[in-house]
């Protein structure tokens, strides 16, 4: 399925992600965390399919399990003592649940960033911030691009060296280490040179100079205005909810939370709408497309 949300104006995309990632990091109510995690993974699966599922299993699940184990090993606060650890400190229910919660939060933020880097491509990023903070946005987009590029280049170098019989998996341990160091040194030289090349190239094109215009294919349409207004409203509404502690939930010293009534549930519902916005947009567009298609 095509991701329609990417075709919205970059400002809408960026605003959406900053809101969602921000609220994901702030809200620790299990219901809101569940909403965010679910929406992030559904959106990822909707747009990327198998890759997102793999990402979940490979990174997010271990993350949750890891923090669920690590947190109670160092944090012993909480009223419900389950048993005593060999160190003599208590193992508490609250610290385990808090570990799961913070693990889920990190996993959710990772998933949102998976979506972020797909939607906000480096050209969108440069478009948004090229004028305001030219050097920083160039450095950022170069850095974000650097890791995949580095990997590709490294594969090339390793291939080339294999073809002349200097594979990193051949020879004695010492030879292999030497070979790996050579590859590393080649890569460092390449990346430094590449960075300078890019910077020089951008400079020669007058990047960041006053009065320089940049081509972009983005148009701010009516739907972007509506989307932006909607996001602004959600952001304001949820911020008020946080101030009024409608999402209130605490783990220590014992678990206490705002009881779920119509008001608090409504705040959660608004959060659900905010998180699910791209999923809904994609589904609606898909339906529309199918409808037009069937009439033809």
């Amino acid at each position: 399925m095509k991701d329609r949300f990417t075709h919205y104006h970059p400002l809408v995309n960026f605003f959406y992600f900053s809101l969602v990632i921000g609220f994901t990091m702030v809200l620790n109510h299990p219901l809101s965390q569940g909403i965010s995690l679910l929406c992030a993974s559904i959106y990822g699966i909707q747009a990327e399919g198998k890759k997102a599922v793999l990402f979940c299993l490979k990174w997010c699940l271990p993350m949750v399990l890891l923090t669920a184990f690590i947190n109670p090993a160092f944090n012993h606060e909480g009223l419900t003592i389950l048993l005593y650890l060999p160190t003599g400190n208590p193992l508490t229910l609250e610290s385990i649940l808090y570990g799961i919660s913070s693990g889920a939060m990190i996993a959710t933020v990772m998933l949102w960033f998976l979506n972020f880097q797909r939607v906000i491509t480096s050209d969108k990023f440069i478009y948004l911030f090229g004028r305001i903070i030219p050097s920083l946005s160039l450095v950022l987009s170069m850095t974000l691009r650097f890791i995949p590029k580095f990997r590709q280049q490294m594969e090339l170098v390793v291939e080339a060296r294999r073809s002349i019989g200097r594979d990193i998996s051949e020879g004695s341990l010492l030879q292999r280490v030497g070979s790996a160091i050579t590859v590393l040194s080649i890569m460092i030289t390449w990346s430094l040179e590449n960075a300078i090349d890019t910077a020089d190239s951008m400079k020669s094109r007058g990047y960041g100079l006053k009065g320089r215009s940049a081509f972009s294919i983005y148009r701010f349409e009516d739907r972007d205005e509506i989307a932006l207004a909607f996001l602004g409203f959600c952001g304001l509404f949820l911020s008020v909810g946080i101030v009024a502690s409608a999402f209130g939930f605490r783990y220590f010293p014992d678990i206490r939370y705002m009881e779920l009534n119509a008001v608090t549930l409504f705040f959660q519902f608004v959060y659900l709408i905010l998180c699910a916005l791209p999923i809904v947009l994609n589904a609606v567009e898909e339906k529309k497309w199918n409808y037009i298609h069937s009439k033809m």
């Binding site: 509404f237 101030v243 409608a246 008001v263």
Partner: peptide, 8 residues
């Protein structure tokens, strides 16, 4: 929003 916030 204000009404909702006050009821919490």
């Amino acid at each position: 929003i204000a009404v909702l916030a006050c009821s919490c």
